[in-house]
């Protein structure tokens, strides 16, 4: 008579979240992946198997655009990893310094751009950097460095890096906040014990604090990865769907948008668009898996 009772309350409590999440996330995701397997011939939707992916990866015209977008995406990510995260960590370390005055003010000031809309950030920076109305040329002129100014957003070689740095400016507050919170959880006793052993100042940061915040840095890296490979808004707001000049700022998000919805005389192709979305999903999934199984499980954790 030891019949297991069905615990209805678990189902009831889970249901709302599961239903909402399935309706707005899981179903659209799988439907998009399904859409990628079809194509349209003479107004009829026909099953095409993996043809769209074959076109995407092997047709020279599509493949060139795809690899260009993917390469740009990696550069976009790399700039964030090399600039945004180290600066975020450095700012957090400075902010957590007990003798720093106005720490709360700096913290809010640095975090504010994060809550701004992409459209505002894109538009504001476009104006700042504008060779015609912008303050960047006149500011450089004031310190005698006018010759360093170039119309960065309009040059193939600088445009993507410029946009990546704008994005860094906008989002540097996020790693700063996360690391700051991690640093605050480090108990004073550990640092004091270190001091007794002669570890002070910078070496306290490198030898005690950094190992303790490594898991947070890992989380930030993976958030940056997912965010960057899903990026679209800033490029679209600043450079439009053609991601000019000459596709030098084209990332997977803008490539997908242009293909899916069409652009100017180019008609939208939801099936190829879904194929690109599927490829983006696979890339992000792969990146997250590498992190979860390759890095996170091997990361050493300390019990505080």
């Amino acid at each position: 008579m030891n019949k297991a009772r069905i615990r209805w309350h678990i189902l009831v409590f889970l249901a709302p979240a599961v239903i909402v999440y399935t309706a707005v996330m899981i179903f659209p995701l799988f439907n998009t992946l399904r859409l990628a397997l079809y194509t349209r011939i003479e107004q009829e939707r026909v099953f095409a198997g993996l043809d769209n992916f074959r076109t995407l990866f092997f047709d020279p015209i599509w493949a060139e655009q795809f690899w260009n977008a993917l390469g740009n995406n990696f550069w976009f990510f790399l700039v964030h990893m090399l600039v945004q995260n180290p600066i975020g960590i450095a700012l957090a370390a400075l902010l957590s310094h007990p003798r720093l005055r106005f720490a709360a003010l700096y913290r809010s000031a640095i975090f504010i751009p994060t809550i701004l809309s992409f459209v505002i950030v894109g538009f504001a920076w476009k104006l700042i950097l504008s060779p015609i109305w912008g303050i960047a040329p006149s500011m450089l002129d004031a310190v005698g460095l006018k010759s360093l100014f170039a119309p960065w957003l309009g040059k193939e070689e600088y445009a993507l890096t410029t946009l990546a740095l704008i994005s860094v400016w906008q989002f540097v507050g996020i790693p700063m906040m996360l690391i700051y919170a991690a640093l605050l959880t480090i108990p004073e006793e550990i640092l004091e014990a270190g001091e007794v052993d002669g570890i002070t100042g910078m070496s306290a940061f490198w030898k005690i604090k950094l190992p303790l915040i490594l898991p947070s840095i890992g989380i930030i890296s993976i958030l940056t990865f997912v965010g960057n490979f899903n990026a679209f808004d800033l490029i679209y707001a600043a450079q439009g769907a053609l991601a000019g000049p000459d596709f030098s700022t084209d990332i997977l998000g803008t490539f997908m948008y242009r293909t899916f919805f069409g652009f100017q005389l180019q008609l939208g192709d939801p099936h190829m668009g879904s194929a690109i979305a599927g490829a983006m999903f696979a890339i992000i999934l792969l990146g997250v898996c590498i992190y979860l199984f390759g890095i996170q499980t091997r990361m050493r954790r300390y019990q505080l």
Binding site: L129, S130, P131, I132, P151, G154, K155
Partner: peptide, 16 residues
């Protein structure tokens, strides 16, 4: 074309 025309947008041109 004007200085920095590479980054000059359509509304910029109209305004100039």
């Amino acid at each position: 074309l004007g200085d920095g025309y590479e980054a000059q947008t359509y509304p910029d041109s109209q305004n100039i």
